[in-house]
Design a protein around this nucleic acid. Structure first.
Length: 875
DNA sequence: AGGCAGACTTGGAAAAATATTG
DNA sequence: CAATATTTTTCCAAGTCTGCCT
């Protein structure tokens, strides 16, 4: 540590001292005893050494840092390389669910929800089991407390529960800066901000913001691309020193949102108890959503089924009272399923023209709704389509998975738009819930979804300047962290033995977040899947394996399992033992004195803007940069790309980005193996032929003549396989000859020539395959002389065989590499880290340094998203 | 000091688009 | 050219984190 301290550029603003003076809360109960004594024996005061990472170039500086190879082993901060075992290998049941009771809450909710008068209540909710913490009642969108939004709320059906709870906060809430519905009128704050923003931006734009740029249209010939290539000027927002980022826009115009088409009934009955039951269109709709998922895992998930059926029955009860449907097991959805299968089939087989037409329609919609005008520039939107109704596909064991997600109506939607812009008209006969002009937010439309009562937004796309700016900001923050991470590490290492349990927990958690790239881990509700992050880890998620190994096993975001057995600092190990001390037991929080807010507040004091997730970004980018140093400087492009993917993979491993193994994985792998066998067989035959010409060759390359030995040799060839393979080849050869014969004859016919007769065909076959076939019928392989059939051609046969063998050897090596790559990638998803964690400047600089075209590592969208980085690195 | 609304980033799966192969 | 395999994009769920409001 000490050594590196001195190199610390002094970016840090907070010192250890300061931290130590933090007032310490008393220890909690039982844990008191241990603390100090436990620490004493700690001989190793030696904090894990971490040198100043050569990593991310300090902000400002071009990412040339890549070039300097000063890697010292211990500087790889990321534990992951020591991870003993990929998580995939350990499929395992999950820990018990948190023991907690919300009976009281549940009771209250149940009681209140009963009281509300039907009607608009989304049935989903109605039937729902009691344990809902928030009344998921969608219908109770917190109304914008705004002055005039009265007009909008048709929904007077706010459930009591909510009303009672929140009535007090209604007025004046979050009104700051938000202007509602009256163009031309705005609060003072807003308008002021607006003015400043607009002036500064305007000038900046004039000066350096606009630059000529060629539209990147090099795409293939008729490649559509619509003519969206905005000729001419492109806005380079990154050239501006942008001031205020709480103001997201000064002018904003758009065309609103696109609604999915109405449901069209198909009139296919549900088979219930072996009898057909015609469904009311509304009931049919939701039944259809389920039917379409019949073959998915969802349909086999009991929670999903239960939730779906509850909501389905609620609708049935409403629209066709007296229906007999009470038992899910008596429902047979296959008629509907078949219907949808048929539709899919039809769609698959649609003619090219029809497909094109469909696409054109989509593009037309996109051209209207897919863009917005932000400060006078046309920019891409992310999602302009309103989400269609369906069954909520909650992941993991989400308590509400399968619930009916109801159709979003214009009356649910709040539009955010510039005060001067024309408000897009709602569909005829409808109106918007509300129209606001809030330039402190970046969304264009918002609604609340009914299943979980969550906010949904229509926002700008990743390629927009708005998102680009915050992306850049994110990576800059990570670079800043680079400058002070040493100090921060030193500090938390010291705090690992702090007298205050709260501080100790904080330091321990931070250690884990830094070393293992864990997520912060906010608290979650009872009505969500039980997943955790660092701060919410529970007793059962970490086990101790002396002397210093912690075994993590928990479900993280999206219910992806995190399994990792990792050696940690002795004091960390000790601390975890303390935090797990009885009477603490399963179901209780490991860090019971720590919240994400508390942790982040502390981080803010160490570096402006620092929060837990910055460590993930920083460590990911750092890992990428370090791993890229393994790129073979003299390798081929192919090899370099492989190295890049490897580095990328390390990052994904660190971040635990996993994916489901594809259904066809096994088959695909087997295919590759077969390809290798075929190559080896070919090589062996050539080698035998060569040996006949040149006996010395065999002595030099004994591996080619045996099935012994490793991958390099002819291992995994067997006489049986060889025979089968040769039969296969021969059969294919025959087919090919026959096909060619037919074709030739057709051509002759076209030229009015006399077609060749059967005899000609037979002659050809005789020459090429008949003899082989006879041998094969007797389970014999054809002579090597017949393979390859190049003996009569010119040139030195020996040489040609030798070089042919070399070529095959190369191909084998390549395929082997491909297999390895595929296998390593089996459960690892690279996309997320590429998109969100790796500083694009690192990749771009690497690309330049190694002469690898950027298209090889960044897809078109990525290149678009990271335009700013390409431009910056270029300089 | 803790709870929650709100907004925005991150994440895996599925769909769509392309590339490869037979 | 059709059928498959692979890559890229879209979709929307599930996190993080800030700022208000008691």
């Amino acid at each position: 540590m000490s050594s590196s301290d001195s190199d610390d550029p002094g970016l840090t603003t907070i010192t250890v001292k300061q931290l130590q003076t933090v007032p310490r809360p008393r220890f909690t109960q039982a844990s008191d005893s241990d603390s100090d004594d436990e620490d004493q024996p700690l001989a190793q005061k030696i904090l894990q050494k971490r040198k100043a990472a050569p990593i991310l170039a300090p902000a400002k500086q071009p990412p040339s840092a890549l070039a300097s190879d000063s890697d010292s082993e211990d500087d790889k901060p990321l534990a992951q390389r020591s991870r003993p075992q990929p998580s995939k290998a350990v499929p395992k049941p999950l820990p018990a669910r948190r023991a907690s009771t919300t009976a009281a809450v549940a009771a209250i909710v149940a009681a209140t929800s009963d009281s509300d008068s039907d009607d608009d209540v989304p049935l989903a909710q109605k039937v729902k089991a009691p344990p809902t913490k928030r009344p998921a009642q969608a219908t109770a969108p917190k109304r914008k407390p705004a002055a005039h939004n009265d007009s909008s709320d048709s929904d007077s059906d706010v459930p009591l529960a909510k009303k009672v709870k929140s009535n007090s906060n209604t007025p004046a809430k979050k009104e700051n800066g938000r202007v509602v519905s009256t163009p031309g009128k705005s609060t003072t704050t807003t308008s002021k901000a607006k003015i400043t923003a607009s002036t500064s931006k305007a000038t900046a734009t004039k000066t350096n913001g606009k630059v000529k740029v060629k539209a990147e249209s090099k795409k293939s010939p008729g490649s559509d691309e619509m003519d969206e290539e905005e000729e001419g000027e492109e806005y380079k927002w990154w050239l501006e020193q942008n001031a205020n980022d709480t103001i997201k826009w000064t002018t904003l115009a758009h065309n609103g949102v696109y609604f999915p088409p109405e449901y069209v009934p198909h009139k296919i009955p549900l088979v219930y108890d072996n009898k057909e039951i015609a469904l009311h269109p509304e009931a049919e709709e939701i039944a259809s959503y389920y039917a379409q998922m019949l073959e998915t895992d969802h349909a086999k998930n009991p929670t999903f089924v239960r939730n779906f059926f509850k909501d389905f029955r609620a609708i049935l009860n409403r629209v066709q009272p007296g229906h007999p449907i009470t038992d899910f097991d008596k429902c047979n959805f296959t008629r509907m399923y078949d219907h949808f299968e048929k539709l899919r089939e039809i769609k698959r087989n649609m003619s090219k023209e029809d497909k094109q037409k469909l696409k054109d329609e989509k593009d037309a919609i996109k051209s209207i709704y897919g863009f917005a005008t932000l400060d006078g520039r046309k920019e891409n939107l992310g999602n302009y389509n309103i989400e269609p109704p369906g069954l909520f596909r909650g992941r993991g064991d989400h308590p509400r998975t399968g619930c009916y997600k109801r159709r979003v109506r214009p009356e649910d939607i709040t539009i955010n738009i510039g005060p001067k812009a024309k408000v897009p008209p709602p569909p005829p006969g409808h109106r918007w819930k509300n129209v606001i002009h809030d330039n402190k937010v970046g969304w264009l439309a918002m609604w609340r979804e009914n299943v979980n009562d969550q906010f949904k937004y229509v926002q700008f796309g990743a390629t927009s300047s708005l998102k680009g700016q915050s992306d850049l900001k994110k990576f800059e923050k990570a670079r800043n962290l680079k400058g002070c991470v040493d100090t921060i590490r030193r500090d938390y290492m010291a705090e690992l033995r702090d007298k205050s349990m709260a501080i100790r927990q904080r330091a321990t958690a931070l250690y884990l977040i830094d070393k293992l790239a864990l997520r912060a881990g906010n608290e979650k509700g009872e009505d969500e899947a039980d997943t955790v992050g660092c701060c919410s880890l529970r007793y059962e998620h970490v086990t101790l394996q002396p002397p210093n190994i912690l075994v993590f096993d928990f479900l993280g975001k999206d219910s992806v399992r995190y399994y990792n057995a990792v050696p940690v600092d002795d004091q960390v190990f000790k601390n975890i033992r303390i935090f797990k001390k009885p009477p603490k037991t399963e179901g209780e929080e490991l860090f019971d004195r720590l919240t994400t807010t508390g942790l982040n507040n502390h981080l803010k004091s160490l570096m402006p803007g620092l929060s837990a997730k910055v460590f993930r970004t920083y460590n990911a980018s750092h890992t990428l940069q370090e791993e890229l140093k393994n790129t073979p400087a003299n390798g081929t492009i192919q090899e370099k790309i492989l190295a890049y993917n490897r580095a990328n993979r390390r990052v994904a491993e660190l971040c635990n980005h996993q994916r489901a193994v594809g259904k066809a994985f096994g088959t695909q792998m087997e295919k590759l193996q077969d390809r290798i066998r075929a190559l080896k067989y070919q090589r062996q035959r050539m080698a035998l032929q060569l040996a006949a010409l040149d006996p010395k060759y065999k002595r030099k390359h004994p591996a080619f003549y045996t099935t012994e030995g490793g991958e390099e040799g002819e291992a995994n060839l067997s006489p049986e396989w060889n025979l089968a393979h040769e039969r296969d080849l021969t059969a294919k050869e025959r087919v090919r000859i026959e096909a060619k014969f037919e074709k030739d004859n057709a051509e002759r016919k076209a030229r009015k020539e006399k077609p060749l007769g059967k005899a000609d065909l037979q002659a050809k076959l005789n020459e090429a395959v008949t003899r082989k076939e006879k041998l094969l019928a007797k389970d014999k392989l054809p002579s090597v002389k017949e393979f390859p059939p190049l003996s009569e051609r010119s040139g030195n046969l020996t040489e040609r065989l030798a070089s042919g063998i070399d070529k095959i050897t190369d191909r084998i090596k390549n395929t082997l590499l491909q297999i390895e790559d595929k296998d390593e990638n089996k459960t690892i998803a690279l996309g997320t880290s590429k998109l969100n964690y790796n500083d694009p400047r690192i990749t771009i600089a690497w690309s330049k340094k190694h002469g690898v075209p950027i298209e090889k590592s960044f897809t078109r969208t990525l290149r678009d998203k990271f335009k700013w980085a390409m431009d910056v690195v270029a300089k």
